[in-house]
Design a protein around this nucleic acid. Structure first.
Lengths: 195, 195
DNA sequence: ACCTGAACACCGTTCAAGT
DNA sequence: ACCTGAACACCGTTCAAGT
């Protein structure tokens, strides 16, 4: 007689996510997940191909969460205000869920990487906001400049790389303003005729 | 009779660095290092406290190398040209030595982190160049904006996070120009009286 | 159909024993 | 003083055997 499942993919992914958030990626082992869901490690392989697939499933959830947090922030009605709000939401998410955040922006083994999803809407509100500031021509470059700066800032903050002290919150606020100026300026220069 | 050392700290660090560059951090194990230097893994503990210390020693070398590469690039005589050259040298180093680069800018276990070194001159030429563009008042914030952007850009590139295609070299060049505008603009605004 | 213990090939690290 | 094999506590993963 077939035995009913004692666990499920959903419970496994949620258990993994909890361990990731509380103890970090190194502690997210098959054995720890197995203990949480109440089976032995080998049983997990009936639900998930291997550890890399589990990490990818969790990363997908994280990507949707981060996207929703940024969407929810972009409500000031003013592009510059929205950019500030989105950047702030991005940083707040990363600081609140550093382990989860690392799944999206840290360099991980190729097998752990999220499959490129052309339908991903993660950065939609950011793209719209950037387009309003930069004009349509250089949206992609401008958006990449914003995301590169924000992810670099947060990455250094999480890595403890700001070793010269100073006010980190103020440095972030300074950065948003300068970046907002920059992508606006860049668009105006690019749109005009060459001198 | 005391046995003379069959290996040395220097050879161990160099072996570790070679493995890191060719196969990545995950392959930098005590056992692999031991094979390269020609002893058994337990013998390494006579020269190095643990794996974390070995990683920190390698990270120190890497930091000096990266600093030297940026110093060597800052020779155009023009601050804006120097900024471009330093940013390019930073990216080139990271792409050529992704494993080594990750030791400085990836989120790693605390024990692997380089001790803060107040005497570190790694970013000296960048600071001088940024100061020439931003004025003295906001050098720290401006330099952090540059490093955050550059490390974020390179981190996303190495992580395969630029999933929308496009010309990555062009996006980097676009970014340097916008950032150079940004920190100059910011300094002028900050220096003037409030409106 | 699912779960299990046992096994295999790895880790980092400690330690008593050899030279 | 240095190096060694053996041991311990972990990994991920496979697989035959149980229900």
């Amino acid at each position: 007689m077939p035995t009913p499942s004692r666990t499920s993919l959903d419970r496994i992914v949620r258990a993994g996510r909890t361990i990731l958030d509380t103890e970090g990626l190194d502690s997210l082992t098959m054995q720890r997940v197995a203990v949480v869901v109440g089976v032995r490690a080998p049983s997990l392989y009936k639900h998930v191909r291997d550890r890399a697939e589990l990490v990818r499933l969790i990363a997908g959830d994280v990507e949707r969460e981060l996207g929703a947090a940024m969407d929810a922030a972009a409500t000031t009605g003013d592009p510059r205000g929205d950019l500030h709000a989105i950047a702030h939401a991005f940083r707040a998410y990363a600081l609140a869920h550093p382990g989860a955040y690392a799944l999206l922006f840290a360099r991980l083994p190729d097998a752990w990487r999220l499959d490129p999803d052309p339908g991903s809407r993660t950065f939609d509100s950011l793209f719209r906001t950037v387009a309003a500031l930069s004009g349509p021509e250089h949206v992609l470059e401008a958006a990449r400049t914003v995301v590169a700066w924000a992810s670099g800032f947060v990455g250094m903050e999480l890595a403890g790389a700001f070793r010269l002290g100073g006010d980190i919150d103020a440095a972030f606020a300074y950065g948003v303003e300068r970046i907002a100026d920059a992508i606006g300026t860049g668009a105006r220069q690019a749109a005009g005729p060459p001198p």
